[in-house]
């Protein structure tokens, strides 16, 4: 399997590191080798937060250098990824919190990630909604493994919420795909 580089980014407190842990756990169930590095800043709330995943590294280099899939949940995170986006990258941004997504030849998909989380009762679930979108678009990890990963990773009282958030993420992709045939090719 080829190498895939993924970045989940936003502002501290949006739960991106948990989303990355769920993804890592799901990928582990599928026997994929991963490298996960996370931004590590003195501030833990509000500042830039990012989790980088290199799945099935082809060279052994563990850090992200050219992103295949980029999730941005807050405008604050846009600048940090400029220069790492390729022409064939897919950039998933939250329509509410990201006003000016990165420019370029890459594919940008703007979705109501945070609003979807709000609809299911907890704005903090936007991280897992995004994860559903990412997985739905990229096929990097099966839905079955991610469901299991949520059960393995998330505190018991939040499991149902996150299972629903994941499903809503996948649903956003389906809705988008029915609008745009180009996306079908991506997945």
């Amino acid at each position: 399997m080829s190498e895939t580089q993924i970045r989940l980014s936003g502002s501290g407190g949006q739960g991106l590191q948990l989303a990355a842990r769920i993804l890592v756990s799901g990928l582990a169930l599928e026997g994929r080798n991963i490298s996960l590095s996370q931004s590590y800043e003195p501030t833990s709330r509000g500042g830039l937060s990012r989790s980088d995943l290199v799945v099935g590294s082809s060279t052994g280099y563990p850090l992200v250098s050219a992103i295949d899939y980029l999730v941005i949940l807050d405008q604050i995170a846009v600048e940090n990824s400029l220069g790492l986006i390729k022409n064939d990258s897919t950039v998933i941004v939250d329509s509410e919190r990201v006003d000016s997504p990165p420019d370029g030849a890459h594919t940008t998909i703007s979705l109501a990630l945070i609003q979807t989380a709000r609809e299911i009762g907890n704005v903090r679930a936007a991280n897992v909604v995004s994860l559903g979108v990412l997985a739905g678009l990229s096929g990097i990890c099966s839905q079955k493994s991610l469901l299991q990963a949520i059960r393995d990773t998330v505190p018991a009282r939040f499991i149902d919420l996150n299972l629903e958030a994941l499903a809503r993420g996948y649903a956003l992709v389906s809705a988008e795909k029915s609008k745009d045939t180009q996306l079908t090719a991506v997945s």
Partner: peptide
């Protein structure tokens, strides 16, 4: 290196 100390790998 800080990045390896905080890196998660399989």
């Amino acid at each position: 290196d800080e990045v390896i100390g905080h890196l998660v790998e399989s």
